[in-house]
Design a protein around this nucleic acid. Structure first.
Ligand code: ZN
Ligand code: ZN
Ligand code: ZN
Ligand code: ZN
Lengths: 132, 132
DNA sequence: ATCATCAATGTAATAACATCACATCGACCT
DNA sequence: AGGTCGATGTGATGTTATTACATTGATGAT
């Protein structure tokens, strides 16, 4: 497993902003928030994000072109992850479902499809926003 | 249900290109292919795509910013759709899985999350490309 | 017939997201 | 010292999507 000490300066800075933010951020939002730390170009953010995703510390939300810090403890490896994304407040809930994973892997097996990455994103309105 | 006759000129042109193409196309690829039909601007493509998606005739693949014609017969309404996308040849397989749908709806119910749209995309390598 | 309305369209400009190309730096090893 | 490799800095460029505003054409009401 990867520990915080092994992260480079830029990776730490990006993860720090993501971890202290409620909800997802775009790469350019991250860039803006890191300008006073010396960030000048999008590539600095994208490179850090690539590594953080490789380490499993950050996830990309494909349907909103944004990134979130992983909310799982990292003592274990990620399986297939699903996200519930509130379109009103931006809240993101991350969860795993073994049955879903099994069904999708089953389809892959049946179709001789070598699966490399699975994206599951549910857009909608969270309980808090519904109550308000 | 929507029939072909109800589509406008631009919608028909976009759907026609998508239907006669193996695999997904980006909005700008569509634009390029439709320039000789009078298309000049991205918005013409995006507007047509929005309507076609509303009608359920076209799907957006979030993880590759592209669009495919629906491969289902349209006598029935779409449930949750999953896609298998080959990163080598671009082939896209569309399918529904009632168990997956039930699990994701179950999570939504448990968390009082009002679900509006679900994205499931599996990236990998298809059987043909594995054989080659 | 004339006018209001509304969906679809045309067009230019701009915003938002992502990558390429190339130079530099620093740690590590020989 | 010299070589290698991963990380970084920087500018330019490429790709995807939306905003703003003008125009057209069909429909229905006055
Ligand atoms: Zn996670
Ligand atoms: Zn919310
Ligand atoms: Zn479909
Ligand atoms: Zn393939």
């Amino acid at each position: 497993m990867v520990h915080a000490q092994e992260l480079t300066k830029n990776q730490s800075l990006v993860l720090d902003v993501l971890s202290h933010t409620e909800g997802p951020l775009s790469a350019y939002s991250l860039l803006d928030q890191l300008r006073d730390k010396g960030f000048r170009a999008p590539l600095q953010v994208y490179r850090a994000l690539d590594k953080l995703m490789e380490f499993g510390l950050v996830h990309r939300l494909e349907s909103i072109n944004s990134f979130v810090a992983c909310t799982h403890s990292h003592d274990h490896k990620h399986g297939v992850i699903a996200f519930g994304i509130c379109d009103t407040c931006g809240r993101v809930d991350e969860f795993c479902d073994a049955v879903v994973e099994e069904r999708l892997k089953g389809w892959s097996k049946d179709h001789a499809f070598r699966l490399s990455k699975t994206t599951i994103e549910m857009r909608g309105t969270c309980a808090n926003c519904l109550a308000a």
